[in-house]
Design a protein around this nucleic acid. Structure first.
Lengths: 223, 223
DNA sequence: CGAAGGCTTGAGACCGCTCAAGACCCGTGG
DNA sequence: CCACGGGTCTTGAGCGGTCTCAAGCCTTCG
């Protein structure tokens, strides 16, 4: 693989690879392909046959389905450690989402057939991927629960509570338009919901910075 | 395993098990547990730690999230061959859905730790589970696409087109209330959407029986 | 044949969407 | 460093698709 030594060293301690022997690691790094994406660059688009399974090493990737008039439905924001591109494991399946880098990103890519071989040669790799896919299914379940059972303001409150905070301040990690789509809302509705929470004294909003004044009341909204 | 010989024989030719040797099959059948469910019986409920991965052999299982006032959000209808209960693969995770049999059902269950061992001993089993989980993720993506991008009538049309037909007649396989929930609709809205399609001459509805008069126009609605 | 549950139909309300315009923010180049 | 410009976000007004609540009907099954 076209991979610098320092990257390999970092990978060796990554959860995905640290449960296996050195030779198995080397073999994976040989069949794997290192990929770098610039901000806004597409990894694949709906309808393409990417044929590869990806591991996100750094950066953020947005999985979305394109819709009319430049709109889109955001399905997932992926973070380092996430495994995706599972259509590669299904013979002759085309990608059903777009995959776009939201910032400079590094990935590791495996041909679908290599993955199936890797599963037999490196059991711990198979276990990691299984765990990861299971995690994805659970996350999707939770997302479906939220969008179908909660109101707009509730979804926004839930999302805010999930963001990492320093002190009581959180930062919206992506464009509000994209977050709104992920929550199943129009940008206008997302904005209005934030305003509503602010009017109720639960938060303050300035740009992408959100101050959480009353996390307990936000949590109580979700009942 | 407490499993009749004839069931074992049927399993031996099942896609999940036919890519492995006889001894590997026998081992799986030994660590696996055979489960039978009566109609309406629950396999597990939200909040429980089922700890097992299931393979549905016959019957149908409904995965849903309970909501207020006896309501529920149906996430998936499972059919024979489907693999589920992936929270078993995540240590200390509780089930986030209910799993209820919609009719008499037979399943094979594996303890989470046994699955992880099986992955190392029986690679083809690991591959099958990976394929199945990938399939599930894709299906969930499609469902999210439909519910967030299509109108009520469009979702109903899409659902009808996916049902198996004999001649031009399809049969709704579950209670309309449950199908409505799967599509993200209230029962009333589902009913009205069916009436609308009937009024437009695309279908006829009598109870659970739906006659598709014009599949092309139904398909054209989805654009 | 009767009862219970599921489905349909109607009327009305409301939440979120659409369309449109203006404000703000941030990155860029001078 | 500042001014500019494009893109993003906010705000307003009005609409409409879906939901809610409430009866009544139909089917099915005991």
């Amino acid at each position: 693989m076209n991979m610098p030594k320092d990257v390999q060293h970092k990978l060796a301690t990554h959860p995905l690879f640290d449960g296996m022997g050195r030779s198995q690691q080397n073999w994976l790094f040989t069949v794997g392909e290192s990929i770098s994406l610039a901000k806004h660059e597409y990894l694949f688009r709906r309808g393409e046959q990417s044929g590869r399974l990806y591991v996100l090493l750094s950066g953020h990737i947005k999985l979305s389905i394109p819709a009319e008039r430049g709109q889109e439905k955001v399905l997932e924001f992926l973070s380092p450690g996430d495994v995706f591109g599972e259509s590669a494991l299904l013979t002759n399946h085309l990608a059903i989402t777009d995959a776009q880098a939201l910032g400079p990103s590094e990935l590791l890519a495996f041909q679908g057939k290599d993955v199936m071989v890797a599963v037999t040669r490196v059991p711990s790799f198979a276990q990691q991927i299984l765990t990861n896919l299971s995690q994805r299914v659970e996350t999707l379940f939770r997302d479906m629960e939220s969008t179908s059972l909660l109101s707009a303001a509730q979804r926004v409150a839930e999302y805010l509570l999930r963001q990492p905070r320093v002190g009581n301040q959180a930062k919206l990690p992506f464009h509000k338009r994209a977050i709104a789509s992920k929550l199943g809302l129009q940008p206008e509705t997302f904005s209005r919901s934030l305003q509503q929470l602010a009017a109720d004294g639960l938060i303050s909003v300035r740009g992408a910075r959100v101050v959480i004044h009353d996390a307990d009341k936000l949590q109580a909204m979700l009942v």
